[in-house]
Design a protein around this nucleic acid. Sequence first.
RNA 1: GCCGACGUAGCUCAGGGGUAGAGCACUUCCUUGGUAAGGAAGAGGUCAUGGGUUCAAAUCCCAUUGUUGGCUCCA
Length: 608
Amino acid sequence: MEEMLLPAEKMTPLYRLRHSLSHILAQAVLTIRPDAKMGFGPPVDNGFYYDFDFGDNPISESDFKQLEETMQRIIKEKQQFEHLDKPVDVAVAELAAAGQKYKAEYAQYLADNGYAPNGTLSFYRNGPFLDMCEGPHLGATNEVPKATFKLDKLAGAYWRGSEKNPMLTRIYGLAFPTPAELKDYIEKRELARQRDHRKLGKELDLFEFDEEVGSGLPLWLPKGTVIREELEKWAKETEFKAGYQRVSTPAITREQLYYTSGHLPYYKESMFPPMELEDEDRYYLRPMNCPHHHKVFATRMRSYRDLPLRLAEYGNTYRYEKRGSLSGLMRVRAMCMNDAHIYCSPADVKQELKSVIEMYKDYYSHLRLGDFRVRLSLHAKDNDKFVDQEAEWLRSEEIVREVLNEMNIGFEEEAGEAAFYGPKIDIQLKNVMGKEETVSTCQLDFVMADRFGLEFNNAEGGTTAPYIIHRAPLSTHERMVSFLIEIYGGAFPTWLSPNQVQLIPVNETVIDYTKGIEEKLRANLIRAEVDLSSDSFNKKVRNAVTSKNPNIWVIGSREAEEQTITWRRYASKDQVTLPLSTAIETLIKMRDSRLMDNFADVALPVTA
RNA sequence: GCCGACGUAGCUCAGGGGUAGAGCACUUCCUUGGUAAGGAAGAGGUCAUGGGUUCAAAUCCCAUUGUUGGCUCCA
């Protein structure tokens, strides 16, 4: 178990600082709540935490001040950290006698599972406080530099991470090597909140939630819908060029379909409950599109000549995500997925996977989503989460691994993260608050063809089960848009932007000319708006900028006279006056090439 | 689902046992302005919902609902 190891990162001064602070916190907590039962108290990447069971004497954030003062006192006392080993039976008995039942339980666990090889367990003492702990720590409490920590928040956490166990109260603290770094972290976190897709989504009128409609059920407003539809248009073009065919299937189905697929009863908890009908089967809202597509494959006899068959659909799906895990557009209960299923012969599967991954690369580099992690999600042995076909698992995992290696894609393998029917390539992105989510997934399925009886006539006159590739490079609209909002800070490129050109007339005399420009733009299917409000010119510029319009065209008497516009871009302070016709052509070019002009290094593609 | 916090005008928030406030947004009027907030007036709220305590509840208590920080989960 890794807690027993002392890898290099655990030896760093920062690790020692944070780990020592968690002990100092625990001592402070026991000062004001002597009956608190301790859980775990490790360092984390922004500080430390410690878990406690407060019984019927709970703590609240209003106690933080007193706790911090007590911690300061402990620091001033220059308590030495002292390491000692205790025989297992002594350790367990003493912890139990002290009423530290979680510590005693864990001590017994360590002993029972071979983590006390010398028959002893490691403890650290500082002042009156003793904790079972592998260390390392600072030499003494006064080595904590001034103003480098701050208690952050309270949270619930299950003992040993299992929801079957009691819920403990976790106290989080921030800790950094210097006061400046602590301050910087707090400021950066505040800045990050400004980019939160939930905040920007409201400010930019992209989407809303309504209590009466329900949790996790987003209402996409007109401006947000523009972004969805532009992404969808892009996907449809891309998939058309790559030989996909579109299908359209219902978001509801009879119960039997999910017994065939195996989602029932296993995934029942994540599905909306069935609709009960008189004299009829039960119906479910679909949590995924796959089974419907498999049924499309099964509508006729397939020949190897038809393969690979690539069926695509932006499909609406519904999942009953747990209340507490819902989060803006990031985790929802109704979503629309950039889905497709590729049915191919075993001989073609590597090539098809490569083509899919090429498509991912194109999308990601175009959108400038560079900061992702590729995870090869594998099955775990002896886990009933996964179908029990060990040989097939190993074979299909090796296929995916080979493909990634042959394409020189860096990835990390993780056991236990696969779909129940096959290994996955997951693209992991961190949201603005640092929380990682899977944005896109690509799965190799060796199970469903058999379950659905899918096969094709092969060249030798027999039949073969196809491999099925499930892929969703652009994720769901919900999750992709939430990431784009945060990564772009709400400033979309022209092609994705709800309003592509904000027209600002400088005075009343040019309103007709400006309205004429709007008409010309709309005739070219460019979204444009004229600011006809009675606001001052400066205010109109401000409004156009704060609403993150990619392009502001200023039109005054000079422009009207010369049939020009003055172009100010969101990403660039420079502005340029161009003939109207040139400007419109440039805009069309930007749209059609899906130019990422929300990045400052991208120049206006003006050709004289 | 679990632990904690929160829910006051469209938005951001202040207040707080004696039936409500600010800024922005909105409406109207004045202003016709050349690159980030011109001026004035007005309108707008069962203080999330339901119950309880109280002479009196937006304020205290309970429940529900929603949001949120975590935990668990995440096809």
